[in-house]
């Protein structure tokens, strides 16, 4: 397996954390190799934000994504910037924030959801990252749902844990449909 993931959106979407969770769930829980990066603009909220993950069954020499297999697009800019690099795989996008009229690759599959709205209904837009992780976990089958939940519980403690777990389970359910 050599799976390249790009999570793109805006600052405040929690994409850095989501990338870390995805990589940890894969790398630590299943003995796979995993690396994660995240874009650093000025460290203020808002603006473009992106996190990438590579999960591989072999040692990862080059740790940066060259050709995404999965793109999470929560903003138009994130979508435009990444879809031209794809030669297949899956785009998971927010139906309100992203217009996928200019579709790229031939073999790319598209799945649109109201991700941001659902997150706001849970309580905060920041839950969109964990909600999306639930969808990705269910859709792709690359990560064990219980591994992801374990990492979530380990990494997110305190008052927000419950809401995050709720967001994750909602995502899992949505992805299974």
């Amino acid at each position: 397996m050599y799976w390249q993931v790009v999570l793109s959106g805006n600052g405040g979407h929690g994409l850095g954390l989501a990338g870390e969770l995805l990589a940890r769930a894969a790398g630590l829980q299943r003995g796979l190799y995993a690396v994660q990066t995240q874009s650093y603009g000025a460290r203020a909220r808002g603006g473009c934000s992106q996190s990438t993950v590579i999960i591989s069954s072999q040692e990862i020499l080059y740790p940066f994504v060259e050709q995404p297999d999965l793109l999470l697009a929560l903003s138009q800019r994130g979508y435009e910037r990444n879809y031209p690099l794809m030669r297949g795989g899956l785009v998971v996008y927010d139906q309100e924030a992203v217009r996928v009229g200019t579709r790229g690759g031939q073999a790319v599959e598209y799945k649109g959801y109201n991700l941001l709205r659902a997150a706001r209904e849970i309580g905060d837009e920041i839950f969109v990252s964990v909600l999306s992780l639930g969808i990705i976990t269910a859709l792709t089958g690359k990560i064990g749902p219980e591994d992801m939940e374990e990492i979530l519980r380990e990494r997110i403690s305190g008052p927000r844990q419950e809401q995050n777990l709720a967001a994750y389970h909602q995502g899992l359910a949505t992805g299974k449909v």
Binding site: A34, V35, Q36, T37, Q38
Partner: peptide, 10 residues
């Protein structure tokens, strides 16, 4: 460097 500084690995 900036890339390595923010790269996460095991």
């Amino acid at each position: 460097d900036a890339a390595l500084a923010h790269l996460r690995e095991t």
